[in-house]
Write a protein that binds this DNA or RNA. Structure first.
Lengths: 217, 217
DNA sequence: AAGCCAAGAAATTTCAAAATTTTGCGGAAT
DNA sequence: ATTCCGCAAAATTTTGAAATTTCTTGGCTT
């Protein structure tokens, strides 16, 4: 029997960020253990790790719960995303070379492709996984030349929590036709090495998730 | 028998951030389990959580290791600390009121007290715990009015990793006489609501840990 | 009827051992 | 002398159940 934890970790992470469970729902290790034919402790171990990165809430002696839904939490996650992405792209513009531009362009190309497919389908959930991967890769590529791995790692975590909040049936899976144009605008500003324009484009892209649509930063 | 995990978690967290183990040292759950009279699994559970926040390195099927020491890692952690603190204090200056100023002043007062004691003693390790707590509280108070809890939580993690790198006998526990004046300068700039001066003071305070003492940001 | 307590049920935490994998070492072959 | 193989020892992962705590329910008191 091979180590099944990494695999199960991925499955749970995907479920938590792709609308498999309702926000605030209680999750019992014993039930998942039965579903996956492993011991409850193996699941518990994974869930403790997922709670350490913010996808699950954990309270001593009373188990696990999917992070609750609230406009306030989404607002905070969005603000922090904006902060990290703006700083990341600003540093990339300062440090990045041709290699950075190439990776960014490639990631944008892939993202455009999957976004076009999503616009044409009725079954968004089926495309959630590749979409999620492509958008994360694109946003990571923006800060790919910042030479600050810990910034990227932090962004991964924040991005996961953000997606968990916004990828829900109620919010229409956060699909907006304007996404394509906004991603395009961010890319162009980055390639132009216009840090200021890039920061504005990033804020505009995410601002629809803010509570009171605030001004620039 | 009462839940001993939270307590043990604190002990290990303290050890990892206060020079109890050498950086890069291998840690075996079974040994710690014997030391604390608990089961190996209980320790393993805790260590997996600590590795999720960056204090331990974990590799599948080959156990745990204290994060390795390197000037490069310290550089990155410092850069990220500067980024987070500058953004946090800038937002606090914009949002903060009298309550923020009071908390900041109180935290600085406590920090000054403990730093004065440290300057007088030969046995720095004995004061590590209160010093650690006071400095963390002070730096957190700077971003206390940013209204972005996730920024503070992220800072806690980064601060822990930073301390883990720098609080070592080899580095003299990072005790510098100039710390007092630097903390003072940051506080005054914050109270003056001078965001630009505050950002400079923060960078100057931390810049000795950067690889090539870079310019302002 | 509302509140409180106790007893049973359910869920969580801890444990110790079994199963698996990695590591270390000695001997054979090149 | 060096490399490669395989066996033994050590370490890690998984398990399933025992111990503990929290939650629920029914009955009793006010």
């Amino acid at each position: 029997m091979k180590p099944q934890t990494p695999e199960l970790m991925t499955i749970l992470h995907d479920r938590l960020t792709m609308a498999h469970y309702r926000l605030g729902e209680k999750l019992r290790p014993a039930l998942l253990a039965e579903e996956f034919k492993v011991s409850p402790n193996t699941v518990r171990e994974i869930m403790l790790r997922l709670s350490a990165v913010g996808l699950l809430e954990y309270e001593d002696q009373r188990g696990f719960r999917v992070a609750a839904s609230s406009d306030q939490r989404l607002h905070e996650l969005t603000e922090f995303r904006i902060l990290l992405e703006q700083q990341g792209v600003t540093r990339s513009i300062a440090n990045g070379g041709i290699e950075w531009e190439a990776q960014m362009t490639a990631a944008h190309h892939k993202l455009s492709h999957i976004e076009a497919r999503i616009a044409r389908t009725d079954d968004i959930p089926a495309l959630l996984r590749p979409w999620n991967a492509a958008e994360l890769e694109y946003h990571l590529s923006l800060m790919g030349a910042a030479e600050l791995p810990i910034l990227q790692q932090t962004f991964r975590n924040v991005y996961s929590m953000f997606r968990q909040q916004i990828i829900t049936p109620e919010r229409g899976y956060s699909h907006h036709g304007s996404n394509v144009a906004e991603h395009q605008r961010i890319l162009e500003a980055a390639l132009d090495r216009d840090a200021s324009a890039c920061r504005s484009a990033i804020r505009d892209h995410l601002s629809r998730n803010l509570l009171a649509n605030a001004a620039a930063a």
